[in-house]
Nucleic acid binder design. Structure first.
Lengths: 193, 193
DNA sequence: CTCCTATGCAAGTAGTTACTTACATGCTAC
DNA sequence: GTAGCATGTAAGTAACTACTTGCATAGGAG
């Protein structure tokens, strides 16, 4: 059995349990059991429980995939572009969902997680502001507070993400894609002069 | 010392600690210390730790204050009404902020908290759909998927709330009121035919 | 074959947790 | 003034926690 597989199994188990129950309630024994590993193996790999968390945080440190894909294939048609941005954001957030949930639960005890997560909207905001300014320059959107507009689109998408990730279909059974498309359509129209 | 005051101090302390650290990490001893009460007093009042949580959940069970204020003073001017709805929603969420945070952290272990919190957007959604239909009937907004539109406004406002409640001014220093006004202005314009 | 590394297994430790019991004390209502 | 109720204090318990140590074993690399 290679080290890599074992360490990865432990990380996966920890990610799942900590995101579900929180850091304190996710015991090393439970993590070991889920990873099908002896409890000592965790300590041999990561030193202590906090070392395991730190490894997870490092693994999820923001990679600029969202920024990168946002800059590709810009059509300079407002609704088309914003829809693509929003869908990509949603998919990206879903892919790091467990990590986001850990961030929600442990931000007070491990502030560095919070800083890592705050990075996502910050970079997204800057990209959007840049895009809006360019669009205004092209005369395709009206004059508004671009930062407020960017934050609004982010809030909108974050809201959709949390609603689906946390409440599932309790609030609505509308397909996510349809929801995002409709909301972006309304938002785009509101920006057009 | 009256019973009421003591129980309330315990509840306040528990609310603070559980919302900060989570249920498991908030020990009964720490709660007792913060409430300036002997640890046994907690058990005499609430039986056990879970009883304390249940008392908190009961206390925050949805009261229809948001629904009520939404129905008052409707002007049937889209931007005016949506701004008021949004501001009221934001203030209401801020007032139950600690409880919302507990809901985020403990939803897996105590599903009934989740159900309680999902109630807020559900009722808000119904009120909004009703309002949108009426507005459409009056010819003041165009034909859209009203449910999607309602969910979008909720997502938008929830996003603003979480951003401020969780990240503070890391992402932006724009005043909340200005942010809400701008986002509602864009959204309203997008709904107008 | 023979190291070496990763892992399992067994046993244990010191600290913490939720919770209990028994008894003392002080305030309030009658 | 005394009976009763809410609270404090002290001591303890059983279970669980993160973490350690020593030894056995299996598989791969040289």
């Amino acid at each position: 059995m290679a080290t890599k597989e074992t360490a990865q199994r432990i990380i996966d188990a920890a990610l799942q349990l900590i995101s579900e129950k929180g850091y304190t309630a996710a015991t090393t024994k439970a993590i070991a059991d889920l990873a099908q590993v002896n409890e000592v193996t965790i300590f041999r790999h990561f030193g202590n429980k906090e070392g395991l968390l730190k490894t997870i945080v490092d693994k999820f440190s923001y990679n600029p995939i969202l920024q990168k894909t946002m800059r590709e294939e810009v059509t300079w048609d407002l609704e088309t572009d914003l829809t693509r941005f929003s869908m990509q954001y949603f998919e990206y957030m879903m892919s790091i969902k467990d990590f986001v949930m850990i961030g929600f639960k442990e931000s007070m005890q491990f502030p560095e997680i919070n800083a890592e997560i705050a990075n996502v909207p910050l970079l997204f905001k800057n990209e959007l502001i840049h895009y809006f300014k360019e669009m205004h320059h092209k005369g395709k959107i009206r004059e508004v507070n671009f930062e407020a507009a960017a934050l609004s689109l982010i809030a909108l998408n974050f809201g959709h993400f949390i609603s689906r990730a946390r409440l599932g279909t309790i609030v609505s059974t509308l397909p996510t894609e349809e929801l995002i498309k409709t909301s972006v359509a309304i938002f785009s129209r509101g920006l057009t002069s």
